[in-house]
Write a protein that binds this DNA or RNA. Structure first.
Length: 594
RNA sequence: GGUUCCGUAGCUCAGUUGGAUAGAGCAGCAGCCUUCUAAGCUGCGGGUCAGGCGUUCGAACCGCCUCGGAAUCACCA
């Protein structure tokens, strides 16, 4: 038996059939966990069954409770509160459940579905380093991919790097003019930061030139168009497109620096990819789909040669698919890459982790694909996440309020180290270990802080609060894990074994803990279905919190009864493993000591 | 104006398909380290779930309307 709720639903169904016969056919049976304030483990809501029973809620609940207690051996007792039948399951049942979970090979890994899912995330531009917004993207993407794996799917993590276009040319021009040949090696800067520096440099000079031009009498509009430096960047883009060797070489060199920098950031963040895509190689995809669309009459060509789709009937607008000069746009490219991916990997689902500023884009993308007749359009999911705001408002690069990803991670780790020092947690003997733990805790705080929030919501990132390690935080959960592991080490030293003997009595909190552990697969399933790591984050917190309360009130190692002690050890060990599993799916490491 | 999303305690957020008296954390106050890790535990105060109408035995959750906020609607990506 794996699913307790399923079993109780079945048993309640039998009770209904026995008590009320035909009338009870198809009556909705609602089993849910009993709320903490009431006695019992699971609750049957009897209101929907009153039609079948023809009696009041209390009598109905009473009758069903009696039948179940008499006929289902796992049901040890019941009580009725208004229309709620609270069922208690026997200690034997719960102990058996714990024993089963301990033996289950793949607990926390759902059976293989045979489905292949691609998760695209990160997808950075190569003209500047990653910032706070990217952190949310990367953490979400990685975690969702891991959760989908745990749901039994085959998962391909993809990253589509935007490595071409005017923005990278801006950095290139600025570097050529003002860089004096500076390299990551010569400057000691990370490659992405170096290139980002010249992107800012470009903007500075661009603005200065605009100012000059307007002072000389041009309109703002003209100045923006005619500033020499922007003309130079545009010229460079044309040269890039015609594969001018000099420009192409510089482009490759500077992108190479950026990739080295990104790799370091990804590594620090703990995210990875199975498949890299580069826009420079995919931007021409999708043109054949335009041809198809024209044939099917889904797309229309304007007199100037540009191709459009009219979506006004769907409450949207006209959307461009091909410019009048025949070149493609973002949408065209995305249609093409989606098509290619489904074809190449026989995908069942494709998930894009992209900010909510592109909701419209993905709405249109899916609509166009289904108008072209592709059934798999429905298997595209835009995992849209909200912006990360700072206490002083949105991040604005102009106002210098951008929170750099590398800086933030370093700061979190440094604070974690300082904190553990203040708490006297570091034994001088093992500096390397302290270093590792500091990284785990600092990163754990950051990751948990971001992942515990529902992805689609705009969230506030308060650096002061994120660095708080008390309460509903990653470090609290990590701490609970470390504490259990410490008990396990001491138990091993004392020669105590963790095992569950039949007939060991259980406390209320112990039954609750087993029940929570038992919910892990359900929590993973729900997180996968909703693409929401937040569900798992909150699950892990609840479990850790319950354990901490239990741990405070009942001793494990000092328990005199060997059978009870063994059972408690087994339970604690399972708690630690469950916490580790849930946190692992969030990309958060849990230390053995902290 | 169209589309999509959000609005829950002073602040940051949970609330899984409609269920019992709406929950945590932070901040504030009061306690608890001679005992398995105090990054912890216990208690107190704090709510018109933006507002209204409807559906239902029952609504924070579903439907309609209003108010407030965000994103987006380029021959940019």
């Amino acid at each position: 038996m794996v699913n307790i709720e399923e079993f109780l639903t079945r048993s309640a169904g039998e009770a209904l059939a026995a008590l009320y016969g035909e009338k009870a056919q198809g009556a909705p049976i609602q089993i849910q966990k009993t709320r903490k304030e009431f006695q019992g483990d699971y609750t049957l809501v009897v209101f929907p069954l009153l039609k079948a029973s023809g009696t009041g809620p209390e009598q109905t609940a009473q009758a069903i409770g009696q039948w179940m207690q008499g006929n289902a051996q796992q049901v040890s007792g019941f009580n009725v509160v208004k229309g709620f039948l609270n069922l208690s399951l026997s200690d034997e049942f719960w102990a058996g459940r714990l024993a089963e979970i301990r033996q289950a090979e793949g607990f926390g890994q759902l059976p293989a579905t045979g489905k292949t899912v691609m998760v695209e995330y990160s997808s950075p531009n190569t003209n500047k380093p990653l910032h706070l917004g990217h952190i949310r993207n990367n953490l979400l993407g990685y975690s969702v991919a891991e959760i989908l794996k745990a749901c039994g799917h085959k998962v391909i993590k993809a990253n589509l790097v935007n490595d071409r276009g005017i923005h990278i040319c801006k950095s290139m021009i600025a570097w050529l003019r003002y860089g004096n040949g500076e390299t990551p090696r010569s400057s000691g800067m990370k490659g992405d930061h170096l290139v980002g520096k010249y992107y800012v440099e470009f903007d500075k000079h661009y603005k200065a030139e605009i100012k000059e031009l307007t002072a000389a009498g041009s309109s703002e509009e003209e100045a923006k168009k005619n500033a020499p430096i922007i003309l130079a960047a545009q010229d460079m883009l044309r040269k890039w497109e015609s594969k001018d060797p000099e420009v192409y070489g510089l482009w490759e060199k500077m992108n190479g620096w950026v990739y080295e920098g990104f790799d370091a950031t990804y590594k620090a963040m703990g995210v990875d990819f199975d498949k890299m895509y580069y826009e420079s190689q995919t931007y021409m995809l999708g043109k054949e789909l335009v041809g198809q669309g024209l044939e099917k009459g889904v797309f229309k060509k304007d007199p100037d040669g540009s191709v459009w789709i009219d979506l006004t009937a769907d409450g949207l607008d006209r959307k461009l698919l091909l410019r009048s000069d025949g070149t493609s746009v973002y949408m065209t490219q995305d249609l093409g890459t989606a098509y290619e991916r489904f074809r190449e990997f026989s995908l069942d689902d494709l998930v894009y982790v992209v900010g909510n500023e592109q909701n419209y884009h993905f709405q249109v993308l899916k609509l166009i694909l289904s108008k072209l007749g592709y059934a798999w359009a429905d298997h595209i999911t835009h995992l849209s996440y909200g912006m990360v705001e700072l206490p002083e408002g949105r991040m604005k690069s102009r106002e210098g309020t951008v929170v750099d990803a590398d800086d933030l991670m370093e700061e979190m780790v440094a604070t974690a180290r300082q904190m553990s020092e203040e708490l006297g947690k570091v034994d001088a003997a093992d500096a390397a270990e302290a270093e590792k733990v500091g990284r785990m805790v600092g990163m754990g705080a950051l990751k948990y802080f971001i992942l515990k929030v529902d992805p689609k919501k705009t969230m506030l990132f308060d650096p002061k609060e994120s660095i708080d390690f008390n309460g509903n935080t990653g470090p609290f959960i990590q701490y609970t894990h470390a504490r259990i592991r410490s008990v396990m080490r001491k138990a091993a030293e004392a020669g105590y074994k963790a095992e569950v003997a039949a007939g060991t009595p259980l406390l209320e909190e112990e039954r609750r803990l087993i029940s929570q552990i038992n919910d892990l697969p359900a929590a993973i399933g729900a997180a996968g279905e909703n693409f929401s790591p937040a569900l798992l984050a909150n699950y892990a917190y609840e479990l850790a919190k319950t354990f901490n309360g239990y741990y405070h009130d009942h001793s494990i190692l000092h328990e005199a009864d060997p059978a009870v002690r063994s059972m408690r050890l087994a339970l604690a060990e399972r708690c630690a493993a469950t916490i580790a599993r849930a946190m692992g799916l969030l990309g958060i490491d849990v230390p053995e000591k902290m």
